[in-house]
Design a binder for these strands. Structure first.
Lengths: 215, 215
DNA sequence: TTTATTGCTGACCGTAAAGACAACTTTATA
DNA sequence: TATAAAGTTGTCTTTACGGTCAGCAATAAA
């Protein structure tokens, strides 16, 4: 175990605390305004530090933005490694995938929104990441689904668009939550709303895969 | 036929042409930057007029933004009146609904993106519209679906979340097109991609409703 | 043809925002 | 404890942007 010699002084601890506080604030502001609309001043304000101090920790807005994006991508990578998901049947695996994605929408709505803004804006920052990281993983996952189809474990559905639909249907609970709140007549989405949503979405996806559970 | 006395002079025609050119440009910029990130200067540039002239036609950014939003909402209202959609069976009606929504994603991706930015940002401008217009329509449409369920015409699914999923799954082809282009390895989504997408999504939705087609 | 209306432009203003910089304070290390 | 490093703040500069305004140009109406 090669221990990195990072002295855990009072300062370094504070630094970590403050940095994550800043990142949380930045996430909020980027989620609500996108990159260009977000201001360092506002992020500093929410972090309860001065703008100059914010700049001390994150020398410029680009860098801060990239860190926020990196945070949410790390979570996705960690939680959504499709192949490594538990489950014996395709239904289990995809079910867990959907549930995990719903969980992320619930727990990290702001990160999700930042990502959405970025992609809708044409992915100026993330495009290269999509090519280098997401596409290879996507290709692998699509192949897995194809093999399931070939083995007759699930119905003959369109694998690529299955993923697109799953992503959209789960992500929407983070990105479009305001719309849902209005339509469901609630001030904010609560635990039970997410439970219903999860049930509904997993149900839809299971039906898409075909009722092969009992073979 | 009460004809409005709008003189169709050379000026008034030009005005209309120019206004719609501006709206198209504005849509592009708002789609790619959101409200706060968009600049009047840039919109003017794309419209190939001076900033001052742009301001002559649309005295301020708010107003222009609202007009762009209104344009896409009008299209949605016109094309997506759920109840008035043709079709005899629930499957027909919902199928047409999905196909119409896919069509809009293909034909008006920028409007769709502007809307997405707006909702993700917390719907600062559209919230009241959602309450006054969208919710009543939503409630009616949900009731229709419930009645179909009660009559046994479709399976017992969650009507509210069915709509959320349909919206998400169709809208994503406008909003997240960049991501799909990367994942599908294409420079841009073409006619046949949208066809495949439409087939896939309608298939998923039909499966969600239950295979009651042949009763 | 004259007059009124509409369209358009250049110069300008105020504000907000990113970020540079120097000075000062607090904390850590030798 | 003395010195170095890290953290913090106030001041300032530059730039981008939304918007005003006065005046000129083109077109329509009388």
């Amino acid at each position: 175990m090669t221990e990195k010699k990072v002295r855990r002084t009072r300062q370094s601890v504070n630094r970590e605390v403050l940095e994550s506080r800043i990142l949380r604030s930045a996430e909020i502001v980027f989620a609500s305004k996108g990159f260009s609309g977000a201001s360092m001043e506002r992020i500093a304000e929410i972090s309860k530090i001065s703008k100059q101090n914010l700049i001390y920790y994150f020398p410029n807005k680009d860098l801060l933005y990239k860190r926020v994006l990196k945070e949410i991508l790390d979570i996705w990578i960690e939680k959504l490694s499709f192949i490594e998901l538990n489950g014996n049947t395709p239904q289990d695996i995809i079910g867990n995938y959907v549930r995990e994605k719903m969980r992320i929408s619930r727990l990290h709505p702001n990160g999700s929104k930042v990502f959405a803004h970025e992609i809708i804006s044409g992915a100026p920052v993330l495009k290269s990441y999509l090519v280098s990281h997401l596409k290879p993983q996507f290709d692998r996952d699509v192949d897995v689904v194809k093999s399931w189809i070939n083995k007759g474990l699930i119905d003959d559905i369109d694998p690529e668009h299955l993923f697109f639909t799953i992503w959209a249907a789960t992500q929407t609970y983070a990105d479009f939550s305001v719309q849902m709140e209005v339509l469901l007549g609630k001030k904010s989405l609560e635990e039970d709303d997410y439970e219903r949503a999860e049930l509904a979405v997993t149900d839809f996806v299971m039906r898409a895969l075909g009722a092969k559970k009992n073979i």
